[in-house]
Nucleic acid binder design. Structure first.
Lengths: 205, 205
DNA sequence: ACGATAAACGAAAGCCTTTCGCTTAAGTCT
DNA sequence: AGACTTAAGCGAAAGGCTTTCGTTTATCGT
C-alpha cells in the first residue's frame, strides 16, 4: 500500500492502543500494537522514534487524564495531598504501566508540571535548599512504590505455612488485595504528611 | 559433549554470573549467562526452571549478603531502621537488579524472614490488626522506591531550560546523583520514622 | 509542473526464551 | 556384572521481539 489519503496512524491512536494493550496484558509490543491499529509494524516508525517514546507518551497521557486542582487559598498540605493522590490515581487506572516506566527519565511536559507544582508546594511549606529535592525524591519514592504495589501480583508475599507466624497473621488479617492496597495508601499518606510536618517543626528555620 | 565428570553448572555459579551481568549491563539473558559460564543455553534448564527462578534466586542472594543484627535490647525504632537500611543496602550494591524484581511474588526464604522481622518490630511498636500490613506496605513502598531511585538514570527529571523554574533550581542545588540519592534516603528515613511515631501517638490504643 | 516530504509496505537482521531429541556418565538394583 | 534410571551436557529450531532499510505513492508548496 502506498501513502493513504488519510493517515491511518496518529500519535493519539497509537498511545490509546498501547495503553489498552498494557491494561490487558501488562506489556505491549510493536507487532501487537500494529495489528490492533491495522497497520504494519514498520509504519509506526513514521510517527514515533521507537518503543521508548511510546512509553513516555503513555506517561504523559495518564497524568493528563488525572488532574488535580491547585487553589491559591489552599495550604501546602492540601496541595501535596492533591498532587500525590492524583499521581497515584493515574497509576491506579493503569496499574500495569508503572513497572514499564521506572527506568525512564521523565521528559513529558505534563509530568514535569506535576513535579514543578510539588516543588512549589514544598517551598511554600518551608523547605529550602537541598531539602526540596530530598522531599521530592521521598514523595516520589512513596508514590512510585504504591503505584507499583497496584501492579504487583495479588499475592505479594507467599510465606510457606510454617515459619513466618507474624507475617502470616498480618496477611490473614488483611482483606482482599485491592482493599489492602487502598488502606495501605491512606495509611502511608498520613505517615508521610505527619513526617513532613515533624521535620518542619524540628529543623532550624 | 556428554555428561561431564564434574558438573559444569551449579546454582551458585549461575546466580553469581547472572548478578555480574545485571551489575554490568542492567539485565541478563540466558545466552549471555551461558557464554559467561562456558556452557550452552539449554543446559541451564537442567538446573533451574527458567529465567524467573534465576531472578528470585538473585533476590535471595543479595538479601543474604546484606545482614542486619537484631538485638533484644533494641527498641523497635532501631530495629526498623536496621531492617530498612539493610534492605536498601542490598539494592545499593546491585542497583540495577531492583527493576527486574518489582513484578515478582516474594518467595525466597531469606527475604520472607526480613518481612517477618519487620512485622515483629511493628507489633512491638504497638501497631495492631490491619495497620501492621499497612505499615509493612508503606515501608516497603519507601524502600522499593529508593532502591529504584538507585537504578534510575542519572538524570531522573529533564526539564527544558524554560518553564519549570522551581524544579530546575531544586535540581541545580543538588550535588551529583549519588549524593542526591544518599541525602534523599536519609531524609526519607527520618520522615518515615517521625510519621510512624506520630501515628502511634494519635491512634487510640 | 515538479521536487520534497510523508506515510504506508515488505523483507531481513539480530536479538531473545524455551522446548525438543540426542548422547553419555554415574548411580542403583538384582 | 549387567541393566535401567537419572542427570547433565549438546545442537537445532520455533516463535517471540525491536529496529533498519529500500520501495512505493499521495500530497503540498513553490
Amino acid at each position: 500500500m502506498a501513502r493513504p489519503l488519510v493517515p491511518l496512524i496518529s500519535i493519539d491512536a497509537l498511545v490509546s492502543a498501547a495503553l489498552e494493550l498494557v491494561d490487558e496484558a501488562g506489556d505491549f509490543s510493536l507487532p501487537k500494537l500494529a495489528k490492533r491499529i491495522g497497520v504494519s509494524q514498520s509504519s509506526i516508525y513514521n510517527h514515533v522514534s521507537g518503543r521508548e517514546e511510546i512509553l513516555e507518551l503513555m506517561r504523559g497521557r495518564i497524568i493528563s487524564e488525572s488532574t488535580y486542582e491547585l487553589d491559591v487559598q489552599q495550604d501546602w498540605e492540601a496541595a501535596l495531598r492533591a498532587i500525590v493522590r492524583s499521581y497515584r490515581d493515574a497509576f491506579a487506572r493503569h496499574p500495569r504501566l508503572a513497572p514499564l516506566l521506572v527506568l525512564q527519565t521523565v521528559q513529558d511536559h505534563q509530568v514535569l508540571g506535576l513535579y514543578e507544582d510539588l516543588a512549589l508546594a514544598l517551598e511554600a511549606a518551608g523547605f529550602h535548599g537541598r531539602d526540596v529535592l530530598s522531599a521530592i525524591s521521598t514523595i516520589d519514592s512513596f508514590a512510585l512504590g504504591f503505584a507499583l504495589d497496584l501492579a504487583a501480583p495479588d499475592v505479594v508475599w507467599a510465606p510457606p505455612q510454617q515459619g513466618f507466624p507474624t507475617l502470616s497473621s498480618a496477611l490473614a488479617n488483611a482483606g482482599p488485595a485491592d482493599e489492602r492496597g487502598e488502606a495501605a495508601f491512606e495509611f502511608g499518606l498520613e505517615i508521610l504528611m505527619a513526617g513532613l510536618h515533624s521535620r518542619l517543626r524540628t529543623t532550624v528555620q
